[in-house]
Simulated assay, not measured.
Amino acid sequence: MQFGIFTVGDVTTDPTTGHTPTEAERIRATVAIARKAEEAGLDVFATGEHHNPPFVPSSPTTLLAYIAAQTKRIILSTSTTLITTNDPVKIAEDFSVLQHLSGGRTDIMLGRGNTGPVYPWFGQDIRDAIPLTVEHYGLLRRLWREETVDWEGKLRTSLQGFTLAPRPLDDVPPFVWHASIRTPEVAELAAYFGDGFFANHIFWPASHTRSMVELYRRRFAHYGHGTPEQAIVGLGGQVFMRRNSQDAVSEFRPYFDNAPVYGHGPSLEDFTASTPLTVGSPAEVIEKTLSFRDYVGDYQRQLFLMDHAGLPLRTVLEQLELLGEEVVPVLRKEFAVGRPADVPAAPTHASLLRARRSDSTPQSTGNDQENPEPR
């Protein structure tokens, strides 16, 4: 099972000091956090994609390529690449280059995004969000898998005789996760192609996440990729830790209360009771994270949000030390207990390459028709 962190790259004023980092400071801090994640023994670092203030990661592959040059082992991913407003040709090119630069330490998480104004900024209509998702992804798959692509769709100009350059590393496309908080059509898309489904359930109760993952697993099996238990599932989460839980709550409360996303809403106590947010000791983080398996089954990737809401870099690095030293080793051991042998590990470039060389069908291939039929 893979453990890692993801960032949304927000530039937020620290409510305890009044300091607002510059965009340059926030970007440099993100790089430092990624390096620390590898040092702490985590498996994945992922960045979001945003094109509006107060966020800075508008060019994820640029950021990840820079991080790739300063790391050796950690998988570099996105916690959303906007399949709706990005051109699939450019996505294919950028991630192929990143694959080569990182030695294959690259996968991708696709999503629609949650900021309506982004659509017209990139010449699209938010009312086409689902059709754009389906059509763009169908083209992206072909670009990574076919030498010469002739393609015609409804929402993008056609292609005649197009060849992607560079081709994917070892002719193995990056593994694709489809991310969603609330959209069943995205779970259907992931299931149709046999890709991974990432339920970013940081704002939703367990019952909602359970229903989304159950839908994906059921449809994954329907399309012939394996049993429901063999579907590839990832989860999001949020944590803040101190060795003493009272200290964690006291320190994190002003950040929670003033956060641009969930501040000035439910109390910290109500939010932690109803969502995956855990504020407390490492033992409490372990206990709550292990409970995720109770409602989604055995899964492959767990990512935590840790650097948001104005938390200073020093504090985030301390959090990563606790995560790497006291939390993840226990989670690795406990999640392995009782895990059925036929439940696959999270796909990596190496595992997909082995499958290709042995003439197996990796779980990331599946159906290659252009359009699923959302249900």
Rank of each mutant, 00 (worst) to 15 (best):
Q2I: 06
Q2L: 07
Q2K: 12
G4P: 03
F6D: 05
V8R: 12
G9Q: 02
D14I: 01
E23R: 03
A24C: 09
A24K: 14
E25T: 09
E25S: 08
R28C: 09
A29I: 10
A32R: 14
I33A: 02
R35A: 02
R35S: 00
K36H: 11
F45L: 01
F45C: 10
H50P: 02
P53N: 07
S59D: 09
T62K: 11
T62L: 15
L63M: 12
L64K: 04
R73T: 13
S77H: 03
T85K: 02
I91W: 02
A92C: 12
E93R: 13
D94V: 02
D94W: 10
V97T: 12
Q99V: 03
Q99M: 06
S102E: 08
S102M: 07
G116W: 14
G116K: 12
F122I: 00
G123H: 04
R127G: 13
R127T: 10
D128E: 11
I130N: 02
I130Y: 09
V134Y: 14
Y137C: 08
L139C: 06
L139K: 08
R142G: 00
E152T: 12
E152P: 03
G161C: 07
G161Q: 10
T163H: 11
T163K: 07
P173W: 11
P173D: 15
P174G: 03
E188L: 04
A190M: 02
F193E: 00
D195W: 15
D195I: 04
F197E: 00
N200Q: 07
F203L: 14
W204P: 00
H208Q: 05
H208C: 01
R210N: 14
R210C: 11
E214D: 13
L215N: 02
R217H: 09
R217Q: 10
R218I: 05
F220P: 01
H222C: 04
G224M: 05
I232D: 02
G236I: 00
F240N: 13
N244L: 13
S245Q: 14
V249P: 05
R253A: 12
N258T: 03
P260H: 11
P260N: 08
V261T: 04
G263H: 15
S267G: 13
L277A: 09
V285D: 10
K288I: 01
S291V: 00
F292L: 04
F292E: 03
Y299P: 09
L305H: 02
P312L: 07
L313S: 06
L313M: 08
L313R: 10
Q319L: 06
E321H: 09
P329G: 14
L331M: 13
R332A: 08
E334I: 07
A345V: 13
T348H: 10
S351R: 12
L353M: 07
R356G: 09
T365N: 06
T365C: 03
N367A: 11
E370M: 10
P372Y: 06
E373P: 01
R375P: 01
R375E: 07
